[in-house]
Nucleic acid binder design. Structure first.
Lengths: 239, 239
DNA sequence: AAGAATTTTGACCAGTTGGAAAAATGTTAG
DNA sequence: CTAACATTTTTCCAACTGGTCAAAATTCTT
């Protein structure tokens, strides 16, 4: 597994109603903007890594601080020294995630050729399912629970991005370069098919069996999906 | 929301290592096969309904008996009288679910015409996503957690069924009636695209916005998916 | 090396969790 | 109608939960 390096979110966004105890290591930032120490950076990374493991597996409610602390190899109070609240850890993970998660769609270029652009989008999403399955599952868990902690981000940032890219797809359709179809549902279907290989990994592997369930499954999936969407989107004379 | 009536699982399968306390209402079945009373039937249904609500939202670990009891409108000890263990409830839900869940695939008929068969399969799966979203989410939750409680069912029953239907699809390909492609990944992509509308419902609705996110979204999805798979699977002369 | 700042630990807490036990109440077959 | 059985409530518990706090240990700066 490659080391996961997600870009950190641009700014910690000032909490409206600061939690009582959220002031320890964080207060400095507010008052003096003291930079993080080496240990703080290291430990926070370790914690986020561990939390990703646990949250992606059990969801927010099902995950416990003790569990995260154990995976992170530190005591619970020590962990709480860095992140005073369970929610804090989760929020950080989710907001970092969204940036990374949407990059491939963001990169779909209006001025490129439709097929290479879409093909590349699918490939990148599939690579993410392969390389960052925990992130995918974290996101899926949040969705299953009704996205209580990120609904605004979904309704604003994500919606805007999708609106924009749907417009690009529509333009390509208007130019007759891809089959006319519903651009929103097209995007949904790309999300669904690619993320499936991360979120339902157990099922995929079990069904494919030992023979075909190895790492090659991602190559097979890529080939299949490419064909599906290629054929599915190729314009054809009506008949 | 239509009343959910899932067929009950064929047999409760004798637990290898019977839990200490799992003997109350259940013991009778083992010893005397006393039939369930009216109240037992009613209350069990109510509990399973409530449990479906809670488990599908929070996953196994995130759900609490108190919560389920509250939704079911009874006290926790009362609930535990009918299902002595939390796991018991979950197991029942999952095993009942699998039967229903696979029916559409099971019904895909080798002797039918490929396109109507596949089209009907997609439609039925989409209807299930619309009418039984909680069941879909329950299943998704289990998968995200690595399917600890149903891995054997997946590896045996599900795998066998998929193997069988993959063979049917392959036969259709051999006859040149649908495009040659990977039958397993084809099935995966149908699962993924249809279940997406249940599991990621919040996201779908948020992205589509108030205008297009109403009930009509399932019709739109059906149209889109039909086109995608129809075009994606139509054989064409190579060139 | 000393003092200041940071990090870690251990002891603790109140609320929640899954579950047990038994007493109290309902239901129903004869 | 009543004994036998089924159901419900009350009380309780030990383990776990998220989180606090002060003191101890460590690290950093000079």
């Amino acid at each position: 597994m490659p080391p996961i390096k997600l870009k950190s979110s641009p700014s910690p966004k000032p909490a409206k109603r600061q939690h009582k105890a959220a002031a320890k290591a964080v207060a400095q930032v507010k008052e003096k903007a003291r930079p993080l120490t080496r240990i703080q950076r290291e430990k926070q990374d370790i914690i986020l890594e561990a939390a990703l493991d646990v949250f992606s597996l059990h969801g927010f409610r099902g995950a416990t601080i003790d569990q995260i602390a154990e995976v992170a190899g530190m005591s619970k109070p020590n962990l709480l020294y860095y992140f005073p609240r369970k929610e804090e850890i989760h929020r950080r993970l989710i907001s970092e995630l969204l940036v990374t998660w949407l990059a491939p769609l963001r990169d779909m270029d209006e001025n490129g050729d439709p097929f290479p652009e879409i093909r590349s989008y699918i490939r990148r999403k599939l690579e993410m399912a392969r390389d960052f399955p925990r992130e995918s599952r974290l996101f899926a868990n949040e969705m299953l629970q009704g996205a209580p902690r990120i609904i605004e981000m979904i309704e604003v940032d994500l919606k805007n991005l999708v609106d924009e890219k749907a417009a690009v797809l529509t333009a390509w359709m208007d130019q007759g370069r891809i089959t006319r179809t519903d651009p929103y549902h097209l995007i949904f279907s790309i999300w669904a098919t690619t993320q499936h290989y991360a979120d339902f990994d157990v099922q995929v592997r079990a069904v494919l069996g030992p023979a075909r369930g190895g790492e090659g499954r991602f190559e097979d999936a890529a080939r299949y999906l490419e064909q599906l969407f290629l054929y599915g989107l190729t314009p054809r004379p009506k008949g």
